[in-house]
Design a binder for these strands. Structure first.
Length: 420
RNA sequence: GGAGAGAUGGCUGAGCGGUUGAAAGCACCGGUCUUGAAAACCGGCAAGGUGGCAACACCUUCCAGAGUUCGAAUCUCUGUCUCUCCGCCA
């Protein structure tokens, strides 16, 4: 949610920012509505003040056993005016928040301007593409050949975009998740939380998924929505609270399933387990003071990269351009891991600074020098577990269809050398 | 699922339909005292918004939403949540 005062004072700049994110110019409409709302509000408040004053007088008169009928008639007349103008105020306010709640965050000055993913900017990379003296297979070929990755049965149970992992692959999924959580909690200062997978609409509004992206979510009825990422419960932990400064920075992590309808992705990545309705992810969330969020984004990125380094998986980091960046973010780094089977880089993590955008929506502040200031929120995958599993399979595969277990994961496999 | 009780400021906890935005205590902040600290004493201490250059004035908020009333923390209805007992259950 945007600071209305900022829009009022910098309408042209605001429109330019929105344009860079593919939005139309709306500042004039916003300013007009805001003005109308405030005018109605002021008029309403004056009437209410008048009513309160009269009611007090009535109270006093009645206390003295005097006649108050004249004042009572006056209040009665005020009521109609009050109701009419209140209605107007509500309408204007609703119109205003309908617009504001659907506008994306303002990009950071270091976010490159661009129309779409083609214009994302290379930031850095690490490691090298592995060499194979055979044709590397894709992850689903490896998994299906081992009879440990089953899409057909999953489809029978649940429809498209689900998978069943069996035996060593199911164990690999667990091992990867444990490895990530263990590292983030022991080395990176994150506190592990086990959180609800169902949240209320209010919560999703606060983190920016609603009202605009309802189509991307699964509902479970009765104001219960399945989380598309643990970012939601983790970020919203302190909604409607004023934090003490010594609670910041707050770094939390959670390993959860994520549920996404993939509404706009029909026909995309249908083969394999790259894009599923349900997948697991280890999420990192930081709540920080405004001055620290830029540094925190770099720190978070490094924490996510650390996982891939430990697994010795080659990757590159891209800075997303304005046109490709998500709704909440003012700056986003995507980490793309190399998948030799597919011969492509694929997103495995996305680390975003949301500034005070979510904090405004969910009303999370902290007290500093007697003032209440919105915090900054950041979130990042650390990492997507399913996609990490894919990367391990494809990068560590051998000619005979086996998979070498990365050193970092060996302790979760009784020091076995290969998976199968 | 059945029966009952409840939801008030950071916390505990008063509150007759009318100077109650809300007593008191704790916590916190400032001051006096002290070599320093504690104690004691004095003072301060909710949030959001509107108008105003400002001082300041006003509005809203006592779980949420509707209603009764000239006036609601206080009365009525609905919803949500919490607690206790019973039943069921991983």
């Amino acid at each position: 949610m945007h600071n209305i005062n900022y829009i009022r004072e910098n309408p042209v700049e605001f429109d330019n920012f929105m344009k860079s994110r593919g939005e139309k110019s709306v500042s004039q409409k916003i300013i007009d509505l805001d003005k109308e709302k405030r005018e109605a509000q002021t008029a309403l408040q004056n009437l209410l003040a008048e009513r309160n004053q009269l009611s007090k007088t009535i109270g006093k008169l009645k206390g003295e056993k005097k006649d108050a009928s004249q004042e009572m008639v006056q209040v009665d007349e005020l009521k109609n005016k009050i109701n009419a103008i209140k209605e107007l105020e509500v309408i204007k306010n609703d119109e205003l928040s309908a617009i504001l709640s659907r506008l994306p965050n303002i990009p950071d000055s270091s976010t490159p301007i661009g129309a779409n993913e083609e214009e994302n900017v290379f930031y850095r990379d690490w490691g090298d593409k592995p060499f194979f003296d055979f044709d590397p297979k894709q992850h689903f070929e490896i998994g299906e050949n081992a009879n440990l990755m089953n899409f057909e049965t999953a489809t029978k149970l649940s429809g498209s975009r689900f998978v069943i992992l069996k035996g060593q692959l199911s164990k690999l999924e667990r091992a990867i998740a444990n490895f990530m959580i263990d590292k983030h909690t022991s080395e990176n200062g994150y506190v592990e939380l086990h959180v609800p997978y169902l949240v209320k609409a209010d919560t999703l509004y606060g983190t920016g998924q609603l009202p605009k992206f309802a189509d991307d979510l699964f509902t479970a009825g009765d104001d219960h929505w399945l989380i598309p990422t643990a970012e939601i419960p983790l970020t919203a932990l302190h909604s409607n609270e004023i934090l003490n400064i010594n609670q910041l920075p707050m770094r939390v992590t959670s390993y959860t399933p994520c549920f996404r309808s993939e509404a706009g992705a029909a026909g995309k990545d249908t083969r394999g387990m790259l894009r599923q309705h349900q997948f697991t992810k280890v999420e990192l969330v930081s709540l920080v003071e405004p001055d620290h969020s830029k540094d925190e984004l770099e720190r978070m990125l490094s924490c996510a990269e650390g996982i891939l380094k430990d697994l010795n998986l080659h990757y590159r980091v891209m800075t997303l351009c304005t046109g490709d960046m998500g709704f909440n973010a003012n700056k986003t780094y995507d980490i793309e891991v190399w998948l030799p089977g597919e011969n492509k880089y694929r997103e495995i993590s996305s680390c975003s600074n949301c500034g005070d955008f979510q904090a405004r929506r969910m009303n999370t502040r902290y007290k500093k020098d007697e003032k209440n200031i919105h915090i900054h929120t950041l979130n990042g995958s650390g990492l997507a577990v399913g996609r990490t599993l894919i990367a391990v399979l494809e990068n560590y595969q051998t000619a005979d269809g086996n998979v070498i277990i990365p050193d970092a994961l060996k302790k979760y496999f009784d020091n076995q050398d290969t998976l199968f």
